[in-house]
C-alpha cells in the first residue's frame, strides 16, 4: 500500500433513512436541503460528505446530537450500508466487500469504543477484552495473554475477574477501550467515549487517551459533541450539522477562521489564545531578530513575551526547521479575544 493513500477516505457519502433510499437518491435533484429531503419523507443521516483521514491522524468529528456524526462513523465501519458515494479503507471500497470479507476487515483492522460502553454483561473484564480475539478464533492461551496485556495497559490489573456491573463508569470505559485495542487495529473509532462520564473522570480519561495515542499512534476517528474536548484532542476537526460537514480544519484554523455562521457560534465562547499556536500566525521567510519562540506554543503561553516585546514581529521556529515571523498585533488581538 502506498503510504500516501489515506487510511479512510469518504467520497460524496450519502446515508438516507426512509422507505426506499437508493431510488430516492438517484432521482433526487442536486442541492436539495436537509429540510426539503425531510419533507419528502427521508432523513439525511449523512449528506454528501467527502473527507480523508491520513495514517496516524486523529480526526475529531464534532456536532450536536442528531447532526449525523455517529451515523458517519458507522458508515466508515459499515455498521450502516451507505446510500450513495464511496468509503475506502486503505484504498479498498468497503461496500464491495462480502459478509465474510467485512467480518475479516473488522477482525483485523478496526476497533471501536462506544458511548455506553457496549460491554457484555455476562462476561468478566478479561472475557470482554478477549471477546474479539475469541470471535476470530484465537486459541485460549494466546487470547488470555493479549487480553491481560490490554487490561494492564488501561490500568485495570487486579480486576480481570470482575463483571461489568461491579465497575464504575470510567472503569467500564477502560474495558471498552481495552477491548477495542485487543486485535491491534490500525483504525480506531471512538463514538463519544467519554460523554457518559462525569467531568472529572472525563478529564482524566482524556489524559489517559492522549497517553495511549502517543504510545500507539493509531489512525483515529473520534466523535464528540463537546467542542472543548475536540480542541483538546484533535489533529483536525470536522464540524457537522444536519448530516453535512460544515468545515474540516485544524483547531487553530477553525478558531481563527470559521467557515460558516454555525461554526462561528461554537468558537465564540472559546478562549482562542489557549488554542491557537504561534506557528499558525507566523508568515514565512521574513527574517526577524530575537530569540524565536517554539511554533507549537500557544498564544496564551506567550502572553508575557507578546506584551513585553516591543517589536512588530516575533520570530517563530517552524516545524520544518525554518523561522517565520509572527505579527505581534495580530497575536495580541488573539490574546485579548478581539475580533479582526
Amino acid at each position: 500500500m502506498d503510504s500516501d493513500t489515506p487510511v479512510i477516505s469518504a467520497e460524496n457519502v450519502w446515508k438516507l433513512f426512509g422507505p426506499s433510499p437508493e431510488a430516492y437518491l438517484s432521482r433526487m435533484p442536486a442541492g436539495r436541503s436537509f429540510e426539503e429531503i425531510r419533507s419528502d419523507g427521508y432523513i439525511a443521516g449523512v449528506k454528501d460528505v467527502s473527507l480523508e483521514v491520513a495514517k496516524g491522524e486523529m480526526l475529531v468529528i464534532m456536532g450536536l446530537s442528531g447532526s449525523g456524526k455517529s451515523t458517519l462513523v458507522r458508515c466508515f465501519s459499515r455498521l450502516h450500508d451507505i446510500t450513495g458515494g464511496a468509503v475506502r479503507i486503505d484504498g479498498q471500497d468497503i461496500m464491495s466487500l462480502n459478509a465474510t470479507e467485512l467480518i475479516e476487515l473488522r477482525r483485523s483492522k478496526m476497533g471501536m469504543v462506544f458511548q455506553s460502553f457496549g460491554l457484555l454483561p455476562h462476561r468478566t473484564v478479561l472475557e470482554n477484552v478477549a471477546f474479539p480475539l475469541e470471535m476470530r478464533g484465537q486459541d485460549r492461551h494466546a487470547r488470555r495473554e493479549r487480553a491481560l496485556e490490554m487490561v494492564r495497559l488501561v490500568g485495570l490489573e487486579g480486576r480481570e475477574d470482575y463483571f461489568p456491573r461491579e465497575l464504575s463508569g470510567g472503569q467500564q470505559q477502560r474495558v471498552g477501550i481495552a477491548r477495542s485495542l485487543a486485535i491491534e487495529p490500525n483504525i480506531w473509532f471512538l463514538d463519544e467515549p467519554f460523554s457518559a462520564l462525569d467531568p472529572l473522570i472525563r478529564r482524566e480519561m482524556q489524559d489517559e487517551f492522549l497517553r495511549l495515542q502517543d504510545m500507539l499512534g493509531k489512525t483515529i476517528v473520534f466523535i464528540t459533541h463537546d467542542f472543548d474536548e475536540a480542541l483538546r484532542l484533535a489533529d483536525r476537526i470536522a464540524i457537522m450539522k444536519d448530516g453535512a460537514v460544515e468545515q474540516v480544519d485544524t483547531p487553530d484554523k477553525i478558531v481563527l477562521d470559521p467557515a460558516t455562521e454555525y461554526v462561528a457560534k461554537f468558537t465564540e465562547e472559546v478562549d482562542k489564545a489557549s488554542v491557537v499556536h504561534a506557528s499558525v500566525l507566523a508568515s514565512d521567510g521574513v527574517p526577524v531578530d530575537g530569540e524565536p519562540v517554539p511554533g507549537d506554543a500557544t498564544i496564551l503561553s506567550l502572553a508575557r513575551r507578546l506584551v513585553e516585546d516591543r517589536s512588530d514581529a516575533i520570530p517563530v521556529s517552524l516545524p520544518d526547521g525554518r523561522t517565520g515571523a509572527m505579527d505581534r498585533k495580530a497575536a495580541l488581538a488573539v490574546l485579548f479575544g478581539e475580533r479582526e
Binding site: L79, I103, F114, L120, H122, P132
Partner: peptide
C-alpha cells in the same frame, strides 16, 4: 439488547451465529 452492545459485537467481527450465541442470547 442495547444497540451499543450489538454494535460492539459486530465490530468485534462476530458472524451471525456468533452474534446470536455470544451477544444476543446472553444479553
Amino acid at each position: 439488547v442495547p444497540p451499543d452492545v450489538v454494535e460492539a459485537g459486530r465490530m468485534s467481527g462476530c458472524t451471525r451465529w456468533q452474534m446470536l450465541r455470544h451477544v444476543f442470547l446472553p444479553s
